[in-house]
Write a protein that binds this DNA or RNA. Structure first.
Lengths: 118, 118
DNA sequence: TCCTTAGTTCAAAAGTTATTGAACAATTGG
DNA sequence: CCAATTGTTCAATAACTTTTGAACTAAGGA
């Protein structure tokens, strides 16, 4: 941990909803959820927005308490604060992610990626 | 029905989240949920905002597909589109309402009301 | 040490949303 | 018909949010 994060009980519902109500941030959260446990760095999300803009969106997610950013070397490792969100707002994250997964119009990370098969 | 409403499959997740990410609108939805089945008119929400401003917020909720507004005489009867939302985003509305109910900092309808007992 | 990589910060511009008051429309009761 | 009630619309403004590029910092490798 390095940057300011709200504590679990400081996480606010309207702020979380507003933060998730942006397609770019929803795509980030969805991707983090799909790689749960694996801390990702910002470069993973470069197909969603510019580096500067990503920095802005990732800061919003962090400040809302949705993600945790840890400085490691020159990278930031980003993880979903699933436990904290589940404790504070039971069921919310799961239903948002399920809804996002079912929405074909949403931007997504790595959609234009080449699938590497064995 | 009288005013433009999206069909169930036109309801968009980021739009719903953004619309719910406003304390006034969250309070409206919460109150509608607590009076489920009872269509309410706008005047019920006058302690949340001015008449003009309510008109704006209620239009946002309607356009997002969260509520239904029916013109009856000079009133609008407003209901939650629970079935449609549950179909489109299972579990989402319930978890948002449960989270809102547990948040003591959120504005609410009728909080300063006198309780009329028998 | 110098260069590269990873990401931030800052200020400006662009775009969007919220809030207001005054004027309007439609329905209903007297 | 007249007045009251219920809510909308419009234009203005205020307040935020998003996006951008240029300049920056900090760590790590050659």
């Amino acid at each position: 941990m390095s940057l300011p994060h709200p504590t679990t009980d400081q996480i606010s519902l309207p702020i979380v909803l507003a933060v998730l109500g942006d397609p770019t941030r929803l795509a980030i959260v969805r991707y983090l959820a799909s790689k749960e446990g694996v801390p990702l760095n910002c470069s993973k999300f470069l197909d969603l927005a510019s580096k500067t803009n990503l920095s802005y969106h990732l800061a919003k997610l962090r400040e809302a308490g949705v993600t945790r950013s840890e400085a490691v070397g020159t990278s930031r490792l980003i993880t979903l604060r699933r436990d904290d969100l589940d404790k504070r707002f039971p069921g919310l994250l799961d239903s948002v992610i399920a809804a996002a997964d079912s929405d074909k119009d949403l931007p997504a990370v790595g959609v234009s990626e080449v699938e590497v098969s064995a």
